[in-house]
């Protein structure tokens, strides 16, 4: 999956989780400060929805303090790549 495809799928999950407008712009630099309702509880919900959408569990300790959507997308790609190469 390319980075752009990952970001687009994350955007779709964010629209569902935070009930955003369909045309919302999400970039690698988007943070919780840009999105209404993105707090610690809904962050947990976002991670669960991301895990369902990508069919993988993310390493818990790295999901607390993601700085922005870009870091989340990187973590997803890294986890999927590790799974494919059999290192996880």
């Amino acid at each position: 999956m390319t980075e752009a495809e990952t970001l687009e799928r994350v955007r779709a999950v964010m629209i569902e989780t935070f009930r955003l407008r369909d045309d919302v712009v999400v970039t690698r630099e988007t943070t919780s400060l840009d999105v209404d309702g993105w707090d610690s509880l809904s962050h947990a919900l976002l991670i669960m929805h991301v895990e369902e959408a990508f069919g993988t569990d993310l390493p818990l300790e790295r999901t607390y303090a993601l700085a922005n959507v870009g870091e989340l997308a990187d973590l997803i790609r890294e986890t999927l790549a590790e799974r494919e190469s059999g290192t996880r």
Binding site: S32, L33, W38, D39
Partner: peptide, 17 residues
């Protein structure tokens, strides 16, 4: 954005909106 950031930094509270 500044309002959210400041309240988060000082109180650890994420404003909903």
């Amino acid at each position: 954005k500044d309002v959210r950031l400041r309240v988060l930094e000082v109180l650890g509270l994420a404003l909903h909106a």
